[in-house]
Amino acid sequence: MIIEIYTVDKYDRESKNIREVFVKNFKVNRFNLKVTKLYNIVECEDITSIDLIARDILLDPIVEEYIIRREKPLFKGYKWGLEIFLKKSVADVVGESVSDVINKLIDKKFNVRTGKCFYFSSSRDKFISFIREEFFNDLIHTMEIKELDKNVFIKR
């Protein structure tokens, strides 16, 4: 299962900064973007553990909120979710760190893989090539663009 951590809009500079660079470089008019952090707790089906990991370990309660989901992105108000993870054969240093913390805190061993999700609704091709240039190296990353259901809702 995946824990998706995102900064509440009021404090989300990262999405704003990335959006500004995209809009400037690709001369796009309107563009909405939301960037989130993904923590894939591999082969963990226990909701209580996942919730604990999200709330007690990963979340910054002042500025962040979280969603628990599987492969399908759930954010409302966007058309696509572009997910980037490291390839399975590449070491995920942050993931290993998180796995270690989980182990020390709740005495369970999980493999953790970290990633990012970019939510957007327009200029698909331009945005994909922007992401390829700035955040992606096909030597070490995987990229998947998932279409969101029109009627999905977000809930923490």
Binding site: D56, I57, L58, V93, V94, S97, V98, V101
Partner: peptide, 15 residues
């Protein structure tokens, strides 16, 4: 500390 993994100071704080 702890590479600022998760966020800066978070893991140290948990420890």
């Amino acid at each position: 500390s702890f590479g600022d993994d998760i966020s800066a100071g978070k893991i140290f704080a948990l420890r």
